[in-house]
Computed example of a mutant assay.
Amino acid sequence: MLLTVLGCSGSIPGPGAAASGYLLEAGGFTLALEFGNGVLSRFQEERPLFSMDALVLSHLHPDHCIDVSSLYVARKYHPSPPSEVLPVFAPAEAHSRFVAGYAPDAAERASLDFGDVFAFHPLADGAAVRIGPFTVEPALVAHPCEAYGFRISCGGVSLAYTGDSGPCEALETVSAGVDVLLSEASWTHAPERQPDLHLSGRQAGELAARAGAGRLLITHVPPWTSREAVLKEAQSAFDGPCELVVEGGRYEVGEQA
């Protein structure tokens, strides 16, 4: 399983940096995970425009999904559009969310149907789905909206992705024993941090240690947070391989990691 980082800036795109977006590839199948600000541009730098086979969204905050609107335009109005709709696995309100975000007035919203471009499949807590060669296990996590973390398995290897979440039991479940933990860490540790929102670097490291993860990859660090301070915290709590992901980075999941 190959992980490619399209964007990893937390909460907003940073200077010259896209927000959350990743690719997982195995057996000739390309699964896009998140599609935030700037990710469609980065995707086209990495792969042909219509080469993704499915899209998974952890939640519907803009930094994780807003470029779906642009992807709709590309797949709808390109002179040579793809012949098949794109499967999108997302929270239940995804369809209405994207229609409302795209259409400027009620009349257009009433006539607009993203269903001619996307096939929406609502996620459910604990309900595993098979997407190409991948098994994706969603778990509701601690965030202000409907939001999921994922355990993604393929060919005997596994990756856990926290999405956006504060510490919660669901993260313990999806990350137990994984080869790679791709964890957000949006700030350094402090007692006044808002609960049920994000992880600190220390909390990400502690999660990886409890999980027995083979490797910790830190992502979703906002432009106003010190990446080095977050990494130092994570490394202080987890003695396994640990690094900050970078835009354009490629990471093997499994024995080659």
Rank of each mutant, 00 (worst) to 15 (best):
L24S: 01
L31K: 03
E45F: 10
D125G: 14
F114V: 14
L6K: 02
Q194D: 13
L199H: 07
V129W: 09
P87G: 10
P241W: 05
G16Q: 09
V245H: 00
G249H: 00
G126V: 15
C8A: 13
V141I: 13
V141M: 12
P81R: 11
L2D: 08
E45W: 05
E172F: 12
F150T: 04
E93H: 04
G28L: 07
A147G: 15
S83V: 10
D239S: 14
G16I: 01
G177Y: 12
V88H: 03
L199V: 04
R151S: 08
Y148P: 07
G16D: 10
G249Y: 04
P48C: 05
L140G: 15
I218T: 01
G28I: 09
P15E: 10
F118V: 07
P79A: 05
L2T: 07
T225N: 00
A211F: 03
S165Q: 07
F238P: 02
P81H: 05
T162Q: 08
S226Q: 07
P79C: 08
R250I: 01
V68K: 03
E146R: 08
A160Y: 07
R42K: 15
H95L: 05
A18D: 02
V99K: 06
V73R: 11
T162C: 08
L244K: 04
D196W: 06
S20H: 01
C145K: 09
D116K: 06
H189Y: 13
A110M: 07
E228L: 10
A160K: 12
L112N: 05
D125Q: 09
A209P: 03
L57I: 15
A257N: 03
T173H: 08
I12E: 10
F114T: 10
G38T: 05
Y251H: 09
H121L: 08
E25M: 00
T135R: 14
G156V: 11
L231K: 02
